[in-house]
């Protein structure tokens, strides 16, 4: 049994890594301009010509960012699901993405209006504040309501309020400079720069390492607080760390790509089924890889499906993610009934 499980984990990891490699190449090669595989491999050295510029300035950073942010998104979802012991929690449904979006929009409109350059770091900080703000509300609600679905409903409501405020700001700030803002506020991986990629890599890498270090207490926390405490876990510290880390991850995604729906819920659930376990030490890297695969796939579709029109990333993630969420809820209620 132990042996069989190890083989299963190994196959799952190999499959996902292979998926990432294939999707990376597809994302880089496919688009309005098709670039063959041989050219992708040679351009790394020459960096010359039209195609090389497309690759280096547009496709490479965008693809990398999609992979990194997709992984971060799934991981944020996993942390929130663990924190709330709720399988349908995620940064989007709990309104954390929308809170981050709201503060980022306010900051951008204010700064652009005063012609100040907006740095990646500042955006992340703004998004983090917004994420914490929403998280605070969700935590307050979590103390008042004990049902899983009510928590999600209150999260969705917080999301609506934040989105409404964002829309208001964007509408009244209609200006050439912030046309991008409109695009961004609906979620998109377009327009990533190498500078963005650098910042997000650092933030996500550090957060990821910290999450990995929490794998052991997280495993105990999954059993329920009574047992975790008896095993010597400091529940308070762990809960604070979980809130901060999931907010940092959500903030990072929103700062660069805007709110993206369903990845945070659907991916951890699919990974759980794929691995047949909830062991955090496996789930953390697996969710990250799974999120990367899912987002690379969705972004590829978003760019190419209705080309030359690019779809919003959430449009695609919803098509694939929402059925997964419905399936979770149906199978859960069936299990509870009998």
């Amino acid at each position: 049994m132990q042996q069989r499980r190890k083989i299963r984990y190994l196959i799952a990891f190999v499959l996902m890594t292979a998926g990432i490699l294939v999707l990376l190449l597809c994302n880089i090669g496919i688009g309005t301009v098709k670039i063959p595989l041989t050219e992708i491999l040679t351009t790394g050295r020459t960096k010359e010509g039209m195609n090389a510029r497309i690759l280096w300035e547009i496709r490479f950073p965008r693809t990398l960012a999609t992979g990194i942010l997709g992984g971060a998104l799934a991981l944020a979802g996993y942390l929130l699901q663990t924190f709330f012991h709720n399988p349908i929690a995620g940064p989007f449904v709990l309104g954390i993405s929308s809170g981050a979006k709201m503060v980022v929009a306010l900051v951008m409109v204010f700064l652009l209006g005063n012609t100040i350059r907006v740095s990646s770091g500042l955006l992340i900080l703004a998004a983090f504040l917004g994420a914490m703000l929403s998280m605070g509300f969700v935590l307050l609600m979590a103390r008042k309501v004990d049902s899983m679905s009510m928590l999600v409903v209150s999260g969705v409501m917080i999301g609506y309020i934040c989105s409404a405020i964002t829309e208001l700001v964007v509408t009244f700030a209609e200006d050439a400079d912030i046309v991008n803002l409109h695009n961004w506020s609906r979620g998109s991986f377009s327009g990533m720069t190498w500078d963005n990629v650098k910042v997000m890599s650092i933030v996500v890498a550090v957060t990821f390492l910290m999450v990995i270090l929490l794998a052991k207490p997280l495993e105990a926390y999954q059993l329920g607080e009574t047992y975790a405490q008896n095993l010597g876990v400091n529940i308070r510290t762990l809960r604070i760390l979980l809130v901060v880390l999931s907010s940092v991850l959500s903030a990072c995604i929103v700062a660069f790509a805007g709110p993206i729906s369903f990845v945070g819920i659907a991916v951890p659930q699919l990974i759980r089924k794929l691995f047949g376990t909830t062991k955090p030490l496996l789930m953390i890297p697996a969710c990250f890889l799974g999120g990367s695969v899912f987002c690379l796939f969705c972004d590829l579709l978003a760019r190419t499906w209705m080309a030359p029109t690019e779809l919003g990333i959430s449009t695609v993630t919803a098509i694939f993610g929402a059925p997964v969420v419905l399936w979770i809820m149906v199978s859960k209620s069936r299990r509870e009934r009998g």
Partner: peptide, 10 residues
């Protein structure tokens, strides 16, 4: 304890 341990997929 009487409170059930959460053991999803365990």
């Amino acid at each position: 304890m009487t409170k059930r341990l959460r053991g999803e997929l365990m």
